[in-house]
């Protein structure tokens, strides 16, 4: 009798939970302030645009970019894990390894792109 213990699963699950925390705790105010308030006139788009550029270029830029990296990357891993099981719940049981590779691979690629973009901006 042989057992294959899935040692990588806790790693993905840890990133999934960290992403859940970022989405719940940090993302709502970003969506509200950057996505909704400029569009409804609660803050002018010019003001928010100026602030974002200031964040990306000011003296605290390295710290802010690190924060943005976490803000962008972890929700991708949360999506990857959740979407994988969402499809499984819907009855997609074949190609589990391919599906996992696609989901987590997309999150890894997104994370690399985020690092490159934030480093180069």
């Amino acid at each position: 009798m042989r057992y294959k213990i899935d040692t990588i699963e806790p790693f993905w699950w840890g990133l999934f939970m960290a992403g859940a925390g970022v989405i719940g705790m940090l993302l709502p105010i970003h969506i509200l302030a950057q996505g909704i308030m400029p569009g409804v006139g609660a803050v002018t788009p010019d003001t928010m645009a100026f602030r974002i550029v200031n964040f990306l270029t000011g003296p605290l830029a390295p710290l802010i970019k690190l924060y943005l990296f976490v803000l962008i990357s972890l929700p991708l891993f949360h999506w990857a894990h959740r979407f994988r099981y969402f499809l499984f719940d819907l009855g997609l049981h074949g190609g589990r390894m391919a599906l996992a590779t696609l989901c987590y691979g997309a999150a890894v690629v997104g994370t690399i792109i985020a690092a490159i973009v934030l480093f180069s901006v």
Binding site: Q34, P45, A49, V53, L56, P75, L76, V121
Partner: peptide, 30 residues
């Protein structure tokens, strides 16, 4: 999770496309 991920991906695309250009950011946000 899909909507959260899409929002951060679009935000990342905005950073890549708008960079340090205030006018471009303003147009994106409006």
């Amino acid at each position: 999770a899909v909507f959260a991920a899409l929002w951060v991906v679009i935000f990342l695309a905005q950073i890549a496309m708008n960079g340090r250009n205030v006018a471009k950011w303003s147009a994106s946000l409006a």
